[in-house]
Design a protein around this nucleic acid. Structure first.
Lengths: 350, 350
DNA sequence: CTCCTGGACGGTAACGTTTCCAAAGTTTAC
DNA sequence: GTAAACTTTGGAAACGTTACCGTCCAGGAG
């Protein structure tokens, strides 16, 4: 029960409200310091070619007036892009995306860049619109965790693009991702080693990553000389925990349930574990992507993990270098390794 | 062990790279459509006062050229702020912040606003710098989860500000928060009802919210006629799970350990639970703020929760209305209720 | 003493949009 | 048939910055 209704009160203290007073411009500073506009600009941009005495007079004026450069006007000049990057990704509530956002934000911030988050619907058309919006804001570069669909419209945007976690079709651009196929193989190999033969794999719909992880799974099975039972390859209608829970329940109620499950995303892993609570059998479980509290669950969860924060950092760094034209190499494809973290759930024998 | 070193390969496909070709401007559109510049602007902005026939000719030209309005130039005009909001908050890896980011992003997106995330260091000076940066980008409004310290410098920013989760000093602005004191009382009351008398409370350092939650705790104790043992009020040096874990371990190894713990943030709850794994005693635990998998832990975790997504939505809505001058009420103080979610850990008897 | 060189500085155009004003065209009213 | 009112349109100014081009002054070389 609620501990109170929503309250709405005017705040009582009487502090200055935000004033509409115009903020000072370089012209104001110039007048105040008794110098020309160009000189102020030079001081603000590093002060090369300005006498120390003049420069400090200008700086004094800046402090007195509380002047701050108008980034919008600055970005209007041709060639000058705004000092911000755009980041387009899915549900921030997913720790995977949140981690990318956080780490790329850090790197961008170090270079004085802000990060603009476009709101992302799930449909490709929404993504496209969001991206166009962002481009209109003259960002210096785009980091995109792309949805499926054609992204060739990005080629005409005139700004560098880095794809994160998955490649996109129709454009040649940098891509930073994890070794999905290797990770899928790693997880499956591990389960095979425990003697499992009937290993189910749960897949979120139509992501690129999904296909690669499945490929790793198949490769591991083939290498072990095991033929894949296609009824154990479960394509979910949604990438949610709920969908995985339902599918797992169905799997485990079959006459010939799998003895092990490979959940190909963190949310799917959660769903699998939820379903298994209500089931007598204790199949082995390996998840893809680590998640908070994985080690605290009744049976600590074995996962295949990679350094997601690094994913974001590399992407941001690469994009900044592209934007600054420091990096003029051909488009790169950077693949981060995965590693297996054994915690218990994946070590149950067949 | 890693399933492979980091690979770096040039991408092989040969798609168009991003071209540096200048994007078309309204002037190009005007020429193409054989109309004046002003007419194009009118069409782009809704088309009021333009003949249908002319408007469609302009729209045709826009489509042909792939014109997209330059938001930067637009924002340069006086009075016109850019159609973006700034969001300043802490660690996105904390689901609490991530949820706020997600929900405010959604609301802003509905109104065609982008959200700029300032990178936030933990120190107040870093926060101030980040905010100044954002203001320089001419955002239409600021949403801030404020650090302690004086925020009066915001009064001269000339844009509306909404504080989220905690108020700030030195400025009269809207604030959207949860009923921390009520939640603290709710949690403590619940533990008292189970017969607990020695209830420890763990507090993250110096947050505003911390103080209110403690106040609710004290109020509940006083109402129950119990004198608070001040050695059970634990001020942590850091708001991390690790700090809470260490403190809990120390608490439980005392000769007179508490029979219940109230962890005042989600990370602290995690730390508490980690420590309790290695302890024989099974004290009751209530956490503040719900978290993913709370119901999946060996003992499902009882929490006091509020609708964090709603927090973000309300803040964004309010800010948008302020920015549009649709809402000219005096600064509001909106307080969302908390509710108790009983899952087991909080129902252990004394 | 004059000329030249170079650093310091001031002024102005330009970026792409919105807004305002005036001109042109069209309808309505008398 | 003419004047008035209104609608549609074109053009120019302005937003705040940067980049470029001159000008000015000091100092060194001839």
């Amino acid at each position: 029960m609620p501990c109170g209704e929503r309250e709405v009160n005017p705040v009582s203290e009487t502090f200055p409200k935000h004033s509409e007073s115009a903020r000072p411009t370089m012209i104001d500073v110039a007048k105040r310091a008794g110098v020309g506009l160009g000189t102020v600009s030079r001081v603000v941009n590093g002060g090369a070619g300005v006498r120390d005495e003049t420069a400090s007079r200008v700086r004094a004026a800046i402090d007195e007036l509380g002047f701050q450069r108008n980034e919008v006007a600055r970005a209007l000049r041709p060639g000058k892009k705004s000092s911000s990057l755009a980041l387009v990704l899915g549900d921030l509530t997913n720790p995977f995306y949140a981690t990318i956002a956080k780490s790329s934000l850090e790197v961008a911030g170090q270079d004085g860049f802000a990060v603009v988050l476009g709101s992302v619907d799930e449909d490709p058309e929404g993504e496209r619109r969001a991206i166009q919006e962002l481009i209109g804001r003259q960002v210096a570069g785009l980091m995109i965790v792309p949805d499926q669909g054609d992204h060739s419209f990005l080629a005409s945007a005139g700004i560098p693009v880095v794809f994160v976690d998955r490649p996109a079709h129709g454009i040649e651009a940098d891509i930073v991702m994890v070794d999905n196929e290797g990770g899928g193989k790693l997880a499956t190999d591990h389960l095979l080693q425990q003697g499992h033969v009937r290993i189910a794999i749960l897949l979120a719909p139509s992501y690129y990553t999904t296909g690669r992880r499945l490929r790793g799974y198949r490769r591991a099975c083939r290498a072990a000389g095991i033929e894949v039972d296609e009824s154990l390859v479960v394509q979910l209608p949604e990438g949610t925990a709920e969908a995985a829970e339902k599918a797992t329940r169905e799997l485990m109620h079959r006459p010939d349930p799998p003895t092990a499950l490979f959940a190909s995303t963190n949310f799917l892993t959660e769903g699998v574990l939820r379903a298994l609570r209500e089931v007598d059998a204790e199949p082995a479980v390996v998840g893809f992507d680590d998640f908070r509290l994985a080690d605290m669950l009744p049976t600590p969860v074995t996962v295949v993990a990679s350094d997601i924060a690094e994913l974001g950092r590399i992407a941001a760094r690469l994009l900044l270098d592209r934007a600054a034209k420091t990096d003029t190499r051909p488009p790169q494809r950077i693949v981060l390794p995965c590693q297996l973290i054994q915690r218990g759930s994946g070590e149950r024998p067949a």
